[in-house]
Design a protein around this nucleic acid. Sequence first.
DNA 1: AGTGCGATTGACT
DNA 2: GTCAATCGCACTA
Length: 211
Amino acid sequence: MPDRTRSESHSRKALRRLRRSELPGETVELARYLIGKTLGHDLAEGRVSGRIVETEAYPIGDAAAHAFRGETARNRSLFLEKGHCYVYFAYGSCWMMNVSSEEAGVGAGVLIRALEPIDGLEIMERNRGTSRRTDLTRGPGRLAEAMRINKSLDGLDLCSRQSPLWLAAPVQPTGDIGVTTRIGLSREAHRQLRFYERVNPFVSGPKSVLI
DNA sequence: AGTGCGATTGACT
DNA sequence: GTCAATCGCACTA
């Protein structure tokens, strides 16, 4: 199916932005809840959006979490009320996006690890420098580049009406959800805090089935 | 001021 | 499948 047809068919569907009150108030619950929801970014040249198909929870007290050692200039967005955006730079090359997940003053978040592209595939291809569909948004660094998410969006309220970066209700039914250990960690490596849609080619890593 | 280390990716065998 | 580039940040002195 040509990109334009696919894009138009999705755009016709009314998007309902998620209200803060409907987000679960606990980090692990939010990580599971976000699977199947829509993440969008309204750019000058058009909208880019995708279905969230993979997340990781970094809950309160988790030694692998950026917030574990307390609030700093870098991680302060994790301490905003649930539904705010925390963006950080990793490995000298990648931006990654989290959704803050607890009450104000408590540091925790959910890393968005992969999307299934919905709108703006041409824009994503330009942003990523590739037209290989499965490489556009599979992985936290790749999806940030495709969606043009960077430090300038750090601290944004994803539930605000005016926000260019937003969360919305699912555009199609959500499939079965699986759980595994998180990817790329040395500490707390045993914890089962990675969630993904089980049958989806845009999921970035292993798919052990534990649920 | 110096050091070590990643919540990864893309290139390559 | 393996592997190293890359640089901001936190930690030590």
